[in-house]
Structures are given as structure tokens and as C-alpha cells.
Design a protein around this nucleic acid. Structure first.
Lengths: 121, 121
DNA sequence: TATCCATATGAGCATGTTTTCAGATTATTT
DNA sequence: AAATAATCTGAAAACATGCTCATATGGATA
């Protein structure tokens, strides 16, 4: 019996080009990488978060961010938590205020690359 | 009355740093760009689509893609439609089969950049 | 023409996401 | 210590997403 069968008989179709399938399977990204990539891109997939990240060229507190993106402080705080959890953003406590900034330059680079692509289509 | 009030009184908080807020608002990306960016990144935010895109280093038919990502042909076809609509993927008809490939090199570049970022965290 | 095969599509269900609302924290100020 | 201020959090509502199943296309072959 063929242990390479898809689990749960999801796909019962014939291969058309076995060579290509073999190649693609061998060169596939490991599941862990796919998972990380998808988490990264999904962090960047929401308009509110993109606007927050873009604004964070400057260090900003939650309150000012809320004004900038025109949403409730709570909504912004929720999004910031997500961005913090994914290490895209860094928090610096100063008294009762928290100042946010981009975690590193990768984020900006990704967004810039995205803008270039989006404006060329 | 202050016409700069957020619509629907969503945010009733005081500005902390008016200068920073002013700067961020002036340099904000226009709504259209944000919308495009978010659509681009959300296309890249799903594991199945990432695996499809990654496999498409080679030109592949729907059937073989289904085997590669281990999902139903229907599921893959749905995702391919989304990727086509967003111009990330190109379709070439050959008889009753349709062969897919990446629309351009931007996609691969974005994914590569993402992988680098994801693996450095 | 009838049939088969690869792909595409629509509806529906299950799951996730984003926001709001109410209330909880943490830190300053009086 | 009490009041105030900025931020955080949990739950629930509104909306979006991804898959499956059934069915429709569009092209090849008998």
C-alpha cells in the first residue's frame, strides 16, 4: 500500500505530470516555514494594522495612534497586542504611557516592497 | 465645532503629542494604497496559497497542484481564482487543461523577503 | 452526438477576525 | 488613599475566509 496517499482520501485525482509533482514536493517549503510566513503576511493583511505600522516611522503612544487611524483606543490596543505578539512592534513604557515603534527594519522593507508591487500591477 | 473630529465620535481621547500626530497624518499612505497593500498581503496570508505560489516555480496544472498541496481540486481551483483575480498568477489554457505559473517575479521576491524575515525572528 | 475529463463555480457550513462595550490594570497626582 | 489617566483585556456581535459538496463549463475523444 502507498503511504504517500493524501490523508483522508482528500485528493483522488491522477497525476498529469509525475516529474513536476515530484520536483515540487521535494522543493516544497517545510510546514514550519509556511506557518511562519503566513503569520507574517496575515499580520500585514489588515488595513488598520498597515496604517499603524506605517505611522510608526515615528515612535507613538496608543492614544495618538488611535487618533491617527481614527479608531477607538481599545481597537488599536488589540491590534498592537497582535503586532507585539508577532514581534513586528516594540513597546517602551514611560510612566503610564506606552510608546510603540517598529521592531526592526524588515517590516518597513516588506511594506515598501509591497507598495512597489501594488503600484506596478 | 471641530471638523477634525473622528467620524461617529469613535475616538474621544486627547492628543498627547500633537506634532507627532500631525506628522503621521500628513505622511499617511492614501487609502487606495492601503487597500491595495492589504489585498496583496492577504493573498499571501494563507498557507495553502503560499504553498501553491511556492510550487509554481514550475508551471503546473490544477490537478497536479491539488496533489502537491494535498487538497481537493475544487479547493485549489477556488484559491487559484483568487490568485488570478489579484494578478499573482497567470493561466495558460492547453486543451482541456489549464497550466498556472507566477504572474511575475515580484511575488517570488516578496515571498523570499518574507522567508528571510520569518527566519530571523 | 454522447461521453469523458479537467477545471470552474455557487451555496452552505465551520472557523477566524475585527471591532465594540464594559470592566480591569498600572501608574501618576492630589 | 482616592481620584484620575493611559492602556489592557474578555466577551460578544458583525463580518470575512476556506473548505466541501453538488453542479456547471469547455474541450477532447469515441
Amino acid at each position: 500500500m502507498d503511504t504517500n496517499e493524501p490523508s483522508g482520501d482528500v485528493c483522488t485525482v491522477h497525476e498529469i505530470d509525475p516529474e513536476a509533482v515530484k520536483y515540487a514536493k521535494q522543493h516544497a517549503l517545510p510546514g514550519r516555514n509556511i506557518e511562519r510566513l503566513s503569520r507574517l503576511f496575515s499580520a500585514l493583511s489588515d488595513p488598520t494594522r498597515l496604517r499603524i505600522l506605517h505611522a510608526l516611522t515615528i515612535e507613538l503612544c496608543v492614544c495618538d495612534l488611535a487618533i491617527i487611524v481614527d479608531l477607538s483606543v481599545s481597537a488599536v490596543s488589540h491590534q498592537l497586542r497582535l503586532l507585539r505578539d508577532r514581534d513586528l512592534v516594540r513597546a517602551r513604557r514611560d510612566g503610564r504611557m506606552v510608546h510603540y515603534s517598529l521592531a526592526d527594519e524588515h517590516v518597513r522593507h516588506l511594506m515598501d516592497t509591497g507598495v512597489v508591487h501594488a503600484n506596478e500591477g
